[in-house]
């Protein structure tokens, strides 16, 4: 396959450029449109002939977002909540996934089925009972409520992905470590874990994205605007009479920056991680 590519004809070359361009336009155009709108005023956003770049660049949308809506607070809240939830979910998930991948115990199958089931239930169904539980625990209107909810909802997916990664690590590696006298825990920590660091990274990124963009629970568990997260803050821009398209677009762009940075910085780990685990599914 590599050889055939190396001896590519000019035609193939051209086609490839076309495919790449179409793909880039298709994926990026809506994002660009969001960016474009974030610098326009309302009249220009809805002008008869759409403008491909703002004729009158305005920063007002961004100003509204920060000065009137305190968007920076929402960004910080989201960052804190998503980071903590991700870290814990991935940590707990890794421990559980290792045991599920390597060991046989009573209820193993049941646990696996349960994990799948919690993922299949629509989150809407859990709102009332979870709200009641959080209320009884005195956790409503705290970040902890959201952190707990996000751990619970991301754990199944995390365990699931991570089982795949652990399955990829050959048994023999562990066996030889054991023969050398390592305890099971030492084997886990020193032999297995280092090998799946990329997998953990990939799982963490997926979890983070989900927690970062979650809306339903963020809306319901938090009553104080001081504690609200990015998606909730953005929803406040759908007002009774108008959707504030400008600030909404600006908020979308700003909200994406932290994740884009995260993904970009961790890209190699991320891809390597997926390479490790996805094959076994």
């Amino acid at each position: 396959m590599k050889k055939s590519i190396q001896s590519k004809s000019k035609m193939k070359h051209v086609i490839r450029y076309i495919v790449v361009s179409i793909l880039l336009i298709w994926s990026l155009f809506p994002v660009y449109w969001m960016l474009n709108n974030s610098f326009k005023n309302r009249i220009e956003q809805f002008s008869d002939t759409p403008t491909f770049y703002p004729n009158q660049v305005t920063l007002e949308n961004y100003m509204t977002l920060f000065l009137e809506l305190g968007f920076h607070k929402a960004l910080l809240n989201s960052l804190l909540i998503a980071t903590v939830a991700t870290t814990i979910a991935v940590f707990i998930g890794a421990l559980a996934a290792y045991s599920l991948s390597r060991y046989r115990f009573i209820g193993r199958k049941g646990l696996l089925v349960w994990i799948l089931l919690t993922r299949i239930f629509p989150p809407v169904t859990f709102v009332i009972p979870l709200y009641e539980m959080m209320g009884n625990a005195g956790l409503l209107n705290t970040r902890i409520a959201l952190i707990l909810a996000y751990i619970a909802f991301n754990l199944p997916f995390a365990i699931w992905l991570l089982i795949g990664f652990f399955n990829e690590v050959p048994f023999e590696l562990e066996e030889s470590a054991m023969i050398d006298g390592a305890s099971p825990f030492q084997t886990f920590r020193k032999v297995v874990l280092p090998l799946i660091i990329p997998g953990i990274g990939a799982t963490a990124i997926f979890t983070f994205i989900t927690a970062w963009n979650e809306f339903l629970y963020a809306m319901i568990f938090i009553q104080s605007p001081e504690l609200s997260t990015v998606p909730v803050a953005l929803s406040g821009l759908i007002t009774e009479y108008l959707v504030l398209w400008g600030p909404m677009s600006a908020g979308g762009i700003l909200s994406a920056i932290p994740i884009v940075l995260l993904v970009y910085l961790m890209q190699d780990t991320f891809i390597k991680g997926l390479t490790l685990g996805a094959v076994k599914g």
């Binding site: 804190l80 980071t83 903590v84 870290t87 814990i88 940590f91 956790l139 705290t142 970040r143 902890i144 952190i147």
Partner: peptide, 12 residues
């Protein structure tokens, strides 16, 4: 992790 959790808990 523990640091973040602790501060989060404290604040809340």
């Amino acid at each position: 992790i523990s640091l973040i959790v602790l501060t989060a808990c404290n604040k809340a």
